[in-house]
Design a protein around this nucleic acid. Structure first.
Length: 385
DNA sequence: AACAGGAACAACCGCCCTTAT
DNA sequence: CATAAGGGCGGTTGTTCCTGT
């Protein structure tokens, strides 16, 4: 198919920008906004490609950019985020205020990657090089779990982007559908409402630890066929994701475990920390009352994961049972009976088997070892740093 | 002082996805 | 629905600066 170039190459200047060019670009954007980048160079009197102007602006001239040396905290964040997200610089940049993806990428390539190498840590896998070839041990489990976390965060980012898109498409029909669903909610005896607020930064470890320490003892997710949980159908979950003006998503679980997914209002969103759960879940209430899991737990990723899962079910991409499988996988659950959660076995089995303590300690150990290395090398004036 | 080699950084390239027509 | 344009993104390159000899 091919594409025409974004601009004619002939006659256009390349290479470093001069202060005069910067000034022209700044002045134009301050007065008119950038508008169409393709048209901008002509209007601004620049002999540059529009793309070049855009990059110059986004990576250098934008007023909300912090330049200069990266702090230790920023370095640690980059290392952490890179372990989770890989070379997804734009995703990493969203968690480092005022830093551009390009700057972070360059800093990684020229500084952090080399440091980790010198420290004997593979910058790709974030594992000690001497153990890079080992497999079948605890490290492979760490790696697998890290992969889960990366997928988890990846899904969250994608869900955030998707929700932003969806928010633009909201129509009155959604409102009407919501109204009808609200009736369903009112008629339903089992309602779980969750309110999310925007999480400005990733703290997946806290989220993970918070979730881990609470959820495994709580058994919060209803299981079809659980003898203890004779919750009626339809079961309706209300997700109100705050952060930005609300997006309210209503999920109705019918008798066939099919999810009905409606969404109302409004604007941009961000899945964040679901800070509160309320509840009219008669069958689950007693169990919920025993735990604070849904109060304190960071849902910054879970909510997006769940939204993604709901979408998958809604679009017939994935059966509900798979979601629960995925959730177990995300938890790093070691349940011997992989089907117990979904197949109707007593949830308590899952509680017992999914102790989680081992996985949690592995995570802590891994991250602490990396970050301690960074800290110690930095503070001791090691040549590594 | 001159040079070489490496480090650091800005900018470019090409691919891909989204959006508009 | 098909296509082109806009723009985002990650990888790479080119230039400048720094340091050691």
């Amino acid at each position: 198919m091919g594409r025409s170039p974004c601009c004619e190459k002939v006659g256009l200047k390349k290479g470093p920008w001069t202060p005069e060019e910067d000034q022209k670009l700044l002045a134009y954007i301050e007065e008119h906004g950038h508008g169409s980048w393709r048209a901008l160079p002509t209007k601004a009197g620049l002999q540059r490609c529009g793309k070049s102007c855009r990059l110059r602006w986004t990576n250098y001239l934008r007023p909300d950019i912090k330049r200069g040396k990266f702090s230790l905290q920023e370095e640690q964040s980059i290392i952490q985020l890179h372990a989770l997200l890989g070379n997804r610089w734009s995703a990493i940049a969203t968690h480092l205020p005022k830093r551009t993806d390009n700057e972070i990428k360059n800093y990684w390539n020229t500084h952090l990657k080399k440091r980790l190498n010198k420290m004997g840590i593979d910058p790709v896998t974030h594992k000690p090089k001497c153990n890079a070839l080992s497999s079948g041990s605890g490290h492979s489990k760490d790696s697998a779990n890290l992969s889960h976390m990366a997928q988890w965060e990846s899904a969250r980012l994608e869900a955030e982007a998707r929700l932003v898109r969806e928010s633009k498409l909201v129509s009155n029909s959604f409102q009407q559908k919501l109204s009808s669903t609200v009736l369903a909610v009112q008629n339903s005896s089992t309602t779980l409402a969750q309110t999310a607020v925007l999480s400005p930064c990733l703290d997946v470890l806290k989220a993970w630890q918070g979730f881990w320490s609470n959820s495994t003892s709580a058994g919060i997710f209803p299981v079809a066929g659980d003898d203890d949980l004779e919750y009626p159908t339809p079961t309706t979950l209300n997700f109100s994701e705050n952060g930005f003006p609300n997006i309210e998503t209503t999920v109705t679980l019918n008798e066939n475990q099919a999810l009905e997914f409606t969404k109302s209002s409004v604007t941009a969103c961000g899945a964040g920390i679901i800070k509160e759960v309320c509840t009219q879940m008669p069958a689950l209430k007693e169990r919920l009352d025993h735990t604070t899991v849904l109060h304190e737990m960071s849902y910054s990723t879970e909510s997006a994961w769940f939204s993604e899962s709901v979408r998958a079910v809604n679009e017939n991409i994935m059966p509900l049972s798979n979601i629960m499988e995925d959730f177990k996988g995300i938890l790093g659950c070691n349940c011997d009976d992989q089907n117990s959660l979904m197949a109707g076995d007593n949830l308590e089995n899952g509680d017992k088997n999914c102790s989680g303590s081992l996985e949690e300690s592995n995570y802590k150990h891994y991250w602490n070892s990396v970050l301690n290395l960074v800290n110690s090398s930095s503070s001791s004036g090691s040549p590594v740093f």
